[in-house]
Design a protein around this nucleic acid. Structure first.
Lengths: 342, 342
DNA sequence: TTGTTGTCATCAATCGATTGCAATATACCC
DNA sequence: GGGTATATTGCAATCGATTGATGACAACAA
């Protein structure tokens, strides 16, 4: 294990002052003779010298590092978001510090502090979606000495830049599409009890129904956690209704539903139509592929970075910016067109 | 956006020296009067003071931060590894800096440098698996001023701590199991052309065959990338052979195979038996569930951290440590027992 | 000789913490 | 009052870099 090489050591070996070495290695436009310039570079290279960013950012007051907090890096969506965001950051010369909180507001807070004290220049915050006491977190975010951008999920009423997909719109689009295809009895399977996004998607579902004068029937609204087994459990009741279509409000929920359907020997879309949300790779396996509401994490990353970039450059107004992205309806083959038969 | 509060400012407000404030806030056992102690804490809290870790680690010469480089954070396995590792690090008070390289040796090198200069105390390195020119990376790793642990994959011939699963053994176990179940014509679908791990799994497959005197038939060895569509393409040829079983050497490869099987109306294990590797969550959907070789990323994380921990504590020998973990065969229902019929 | 200009390189302060050692204050004892 | 313990607190160096101000020296002009 080699030792760390410092600027001073390089200076000593070359026989010049540390300042000169610093000047040369940073390519500062100053007059150091070509000869010394070359010798410094040569010695630095030979000794595998890398500047200590810690010391550097202490005086420069910036680290060109950004932080990201996600509730769970093992989720496909967040992993993909993290991947895209990191790529984007790197393009602009920023390193991205990815951390995963476990979803509780306490952990979010702890990680946020860690990042700040470690000198990141800004932080992307994907807060846990489920209910929890977020007063301390809220307090911390509003006192942050660096720019923060909330991504995908917001803390209500917090003055902070936000970039997110419109979940209500997603629920609306899915349901609206089913209605347009002639469906009238549409069930939904959502995580409204524990998730803000879930509640919004449910609201969109209900708006679509209301808009065309269809009744909102509590017997068609089913609850499921964002896990396959939970959705699998819940699906039995869903399939016992007279619904001709189901809006499954997440990829895992759709997978649980599919498993149950498969077991019961029911086919899609012949026996029942399905619109999914935010599909996972797994659904390439199914015939037909699932019609779904898609949210591209790359787009989210792009906008989040743009927002951050603005703040870092000192542009960007005093008030918080709010970017709302529309999800997309991707039509594949899991919805039966009932209008043909009318 | 609040300003950063420094130790000095707190000191000023309290009317004491920065040293005293530092001493108190770090709970150093020194005699500062109870009264001042309380006042300092009160003022620090009121001003949302958080110590600047950058400055701190400059003098302390440690940051209690570790780094992780994975080829692709969007892969389930790496995401899961990252998640487990982060949790483990946090338990010991370390923050984990997760970065994703894109899989090229150049990016690995770049990220490694970034991490080192940003003052991490140690780094976990999951290098890209495919062929590339890794001389520079190799050089850098051997000159690292901090401990490094290679995880899941190694650079051959590099003196460095390693923690990984035995891929050869995995291939062997899968094949051996199929043989024990009475199979004689066993095909395999591996990524041997571009992946080191793939080659090792293939070697295990061949060893199992050799061991019982079965012929190694090149016509039963098929090549596939680690992507579903690639495996899907390759599967047609696999299914045209007289094999009664297939060893699919990754989760995605198995999924591609399954898609093809499903399309052809073939059933598992009635028409053909399958042993998969490293199953993704998606396979909960299938009936029967897939028998597979499993590598628990949590176990990998645990051992990697233990290894790192040793180095950081200054224990751990001069020579590199090498931990090889055995994967596990998880028997579910995708293999037909031919011995029953003999 | 003195002054001017230009080139090359160094000095010393700074960033925000930590910490060994020195300093001050107060009390207590003889 | 002088000496010694004890309880508090401050000074100043340090970590490894950056950078504006400054110095040293040579060449050249007046």
């Amino acid at each position: 294990m080699a030792n760390k090489v410092t600027l001073k050591q390089i200076a000593q070996e070359v026989g010049l002052s540390p300042s000169s070495v610093s000047l040369v290695l940073n390519n500062r436009p100053c007059r150091i003779s070509e000869e010394n310039r070359k010798r410094i570079k040569e010695v630095a290279a030979r000794n595998h010298y890398v500047p200590n960013q810690i010391a550097r950012s202490l005086v420069m007051r910036e680290s060109r590092t950004l932080g990201l907090i996600v509730p769970n890096i093992e989720s496909r969506f967040f992993a993909s978001l993290a991947g895209s965001l990191e790529k984007r950051c790197r393009e602009d010369g920023y390193a991205l510090f990815i951390t995963s909180s476990g979803g509780s507001a306490d952990d979010d807070l702890e990680l946020l502090r860690q990042l700040v004290t470690r000198g990141v220049d800004g932080v992307f915050l994907v807060v846990g979606d489920e209910f929890s006491d977020d007063r301390a977190l809220r307090e911390e975010v509003s006192h942050l000495p660096i720019p923060a951008v909330m991504v995908d999920r917001a803390i209500e009423g917090l003055e902070c830049d936000k970039v997110m997909f419109d979940h209500e719109m997603g629920g609306y689009m899915a349901t609206r599409y089913l209605i347009e295809q002639g469906h009238r009895r549409i069930a939904c399977l959502v995580n409204a009890r524990r998730s803000n996004t879930g509640r919004k998607r449910l609201a969109g579902y209900e708006r679509a129904l209301r808009e065309v004068g269809l009744p909102i029937d509590a017997r068609l609204e089913f609850e499921s956690e964002y896990y396959i087994p939970s959705a699998y459990e819940a699906s039995e009741a869903v399939l016992a209704t007279d619904a001709t279509a189901v809006f499954a409000s997440s990829d895992n929920i759709a997978l649980g539903l599919l498993k149950r359907l498969h077991e019961m020997g029911k086919s899609i879309p012949g026996d029942i139509s399905v619109v999914s949300y935010d599909n996972s790779a797994a659904d390439v396996l199914f015939e037909p592929a699932l019609t779904a509401i898609e949210q591209d994490p790359g787009v989210l990353a792009e906008h989040a970075f743009a927002c951050m970039s603005k703040r870092l450059a000192g542009r960007g107004g005093k008030r918080a910016e709010e970017v709302v992205l529309e999800p997309a309806l991707i039509v594949k083959g899991s919805v039966l067109d009932l209008t043909e038969y009318s």
